[in-house]
Amino acid sequence: MLKLKKTDLLIILILILSALLIYFIFYINNSNSDKNTAAEILINGKSEKIISLLEDKTFSIETIPNIKFEIKDKKIRFMESDCPDKICVNTGFIGTSGQTAVCLPNTVSVKIIPLNNDKNNLDIIAQ
C-alpha cells in the first residue's frame, strides 16, 4: 500500500537534515553568547521592558495586568495568564539566551537577551 520511491526517501532525508542544520545553527549561536542574560518583554513585537534575572520575584506589568511573570534561579516564566490555551504557561522556565516564550492571544512574548551585548549588536545577529 505504501510504496516509497527514491524521490520520497530523498525528500524526507532533506527535511530531517534541514531540521538538524537549523538546530545546530541556533545551538552554535547560543554557545557563543554570554551567560549574563536579561529578559525582554515584548508586546505586539515592541519592547516593553527589559528586566534583570538576578533577583527572584513575581511581578506583572501595568499595561498587561492579566499576565503574571515569575523570576527564579536566573530563569523567567509566565506564571499566570488569562489566555485559553495556556501555551505560554506550559512553556515553563526559560533562561538561555535566544529562548522565547509567547502568549499569542495577548501578543506578549518574553525573550532572553544577552546583557553585555548592546541591543544593536543583537539585531544584527538576528537579521
Binding site: 513585537g45 522565547t100 509567547v102
Partner: peptide, 18 residues
Amino acid sequence: ITNNVYIFYYLPVLIVSG
C-alpha cells in the same frame, strides 16, 4: 506577528513532528 526571529528556534521540533 511577534516580530521575533528567535521563534524559529522551535523550527527543528516542528519539522520533525511535522
